[in-house]
Every structure is written in structure tokens, then in C-alpha cells.
Simulated scan of single mutants.
Amino acid sequence: MRRGNRTDTALGLSYPRGPLTRVLRILLHTVVVVIFAGPLLALLVGAFGEVTSPTEFTLIPRGFTLGNFTRAIDRDVLLYLLNSFVVVGGGLLLQIAVSVSASYALARKRFPGMRLVFLLILSTMMLPEEILAIPLSLVLADVPVVHVNLIGSLWGMILPVAAWGFSILVMTEFMKEIPVELEESARIDGAGELRIFTAIVLPLCRPALGVIGIFGFTMIWDQYLLPLLVARDAGQFTLPLALRNLRSDEEVGLGVLLAASLLALLPSVIAFLALQRQFMKGLTAGAVKG
């Protein structure tokens, strides 16, 4: 909003208009663009460019080559990428199934100790992964009741991410906003609990499913400590863990490392683009309900 020679901002602040202000705004916008877009541009230039020195890093393209990706594939990057897809695919499916089931019980049912259960779920979000590393490794080495050793197996990376407090919290708060009258009408028509859950509640939760889908995919895809605890040989590495080995390998150049990093980045970008409509609807719905 403009008032004379001054302009009001969204925060209610005002600043004078003039050539100096315009120059400062351009400089500020340039700094913001460089901070956010600079690393991505450097990644693209390094992945597709010819890197003459392993210690030299530049934003200026020097030729175009796919040799970095070829050498990355020779280092079994595709195997690590496949392992990551298996872990994130199985983990995300289990995580969504657990989240919607637990959220339905917490949001639509009443049972003794419900607040305690919800408090325990929230408490898991406050504990750093490093604190849980040793207990988790002991549990995975001898899973209670069944006494199965999951160390050295991809299942050891999938099962621990099957439940995430953030996803349960988001789904619970979203389900609480669904009108109870819809369920009561369905029960009057003779619908059972399972049909109400699958035919009424879940379709209305699509925006929230998009939100937990994107955040869950990113969380599982970026896991580093869990694969580090579980993997016993290079054939079980996921891509984030393999990037550590590529960086420590003196025979691998900077271009190969950046090419592998670009392959690690693309799935998260594709997942966001695929679910961005539901993601934005979920954020908008949360803002309106709040």
C-alpha cells in the first residue's frame, strides 16, 4: 500500500520510495536468489561440466559432458539408487498405513489412556536420532517376540520408519475437522466402520495425505544414520550413505560426486512436483481451519 512517497509492507512497516530504495531492494533480491539458487546452479554446472581439478569448484560452465554420470554408474550408484527406492517405497507405504490408522483412532474414537498415547507419540518427535541409535541397533539385532536379526537387511531400514510422529500428528488434526455428521449419516445407511473409513474419511484426507507423503518421502530418502547402523556391506548402502564413501574416495573426482548428488536430489524434486497440488491444498486447508 502506498502513502505518498512511502510504501507499507505486509508487516505494517513503511519505507521511503526512491532510487536508493530501489537499488537496495534489487541488491537484497539478488542476495536471496544467490543464496537459494546458487547451490543448485553449482550442482548442475559441476555435474554436467568438465572438472579439471578435484579441488576446483566454479559456477562458470566449462564444456558439457556426461562422463561424470558414466563414472558414477561404474561406481554402482544405480545399485545404491535402487536400494534407496526400495527403502523409501516400502517405508512410505507402511508409514502412511500406520499414520492413517492411528490417526483415525485418535481423532474419531475415545478410549482410556488416549491422551497418554498421544503424548508418547509427540515425545518421539523430541528425541534426536543420535540418542536412539544404540537402543535401535540393539532392537534390530534381536527383534523382541520374533527374535529376528534385521541387521544387514533392507527390512532393518524399512520397519523403523513405518511410524512417524509428525505424520500421525498431521493426520490426526486433519481428521478432527471432518464433520461427524458424515459418519453418522453413513451408519444410518448401514455402512460399517471399514467402509466409513475407506469411502468417506480417507477421500476427504487427500490434502493431508499429500503433505505427509512429501514430508515422509523426504525424511526416509534423506536417512543417513539408520542405513549406517543397518548396512553391513556396500551392496546394502542407500544413496545418501554411498555419497559419504564417494567423497572419501580419493580416486573419485568432484564431478562424479556432484553427478551422484544430482541423482540423489531428483527423486525428491519429482515427488514434490507429483504431489504439489495435494500438498498446497493441505497447507491451505490447515491455514483456513486454523
Rank of each mutant, 00 (worst) to 15 (best):
L239C: 04
P135W: 11
L78I: 11
F217N: 02
L273W: 04
L13A: 10
A234K: 10
G12L: 10
P128K: 09
V32F: 10
L263M: 15
S14L: 07
L204N: 11
P54W: 14
L246C: 14
V143R: 02
V77G: 11
L262W: 05
K109L: 15
L150S: 00
L138D: 12
I35K: 05
A37G: 04
P267M: 04
L127R: 06
V100G: 02
V23R: 10
C205L: 11
E129V: 11
G63V: 02
L106Y: 01
S53C: 02
C205E: 07
M280P: 04
T218S: 01
V201I: 11
L120D: 04
P144M: 06
S268R: 01
T52E: 09
L228Y: 14
L93M: 10
F36P: 06
I200W: 03
M1R: 13
Q278M: 03
R62P: 02
L59D: 11
L79S: 14
L228M: 14
L257F: 15
L40D: 12
G38F: 06
A260L: 06
L254D: 11
G113L: 08
M126A: 14
F111R: 03
R2H: 13
T198E: 01
E184V: 08
P144I: 04
A287N: 07
G18Q: 09
A10C: 00
E183W: 00
L246N: 12
L24E: 15
S268I: 13
L28K: 08
I158W: 00
M157N: 03
S185M: 12
L266S: 07
A287Y: 05
L262M: 08
K281C: 01
I26P: 00
L81C: 04
A199N: 09
G89E: 09
V77M: 14
A42W: 05
L106A: 03
D8T: 11
P179S: 07
L93V: 11
L194W: 13
V143H: 01
R110I: 12
L41T: 12
T65A: 13
P227T: 09
L66F: 10
S248I: 05
I212D: 01
V230P: 06
S137Y: 12
V145N: 02
Y224L: 13
E251A: 07
L120G: 07
K281L: 08
I188A: 10
N5T: 14
L246T: 10
V34Y: 09
T9K: 01
E250M: 06
G18F: 05
D142G: 01
A97Y: 05
L43Q: 04
G253P: 11
L257H: 08
F197C: 02
G213L: 14
A231I: 13
I214L: 12
G216V: 14
I214W: 00
G192W: 10
L66C: 06
A162W: 01
L254R: 13
Y15M: 09
Y80V: 12
L78S: 03
L241Y: 15
R115P: 06
V146K: 04
E251L: 04
I60L: 11
L283D: 00
S101V: 08
N68R: 07
L229M: 12
R206K: 09
V288L: 15
L13E: 14
F57G: 00
L122W: 04
V31C: 10
V31G: 13
L79D: 15
L59P: 02
P16T: 14
E173R: 06
R115S: 14
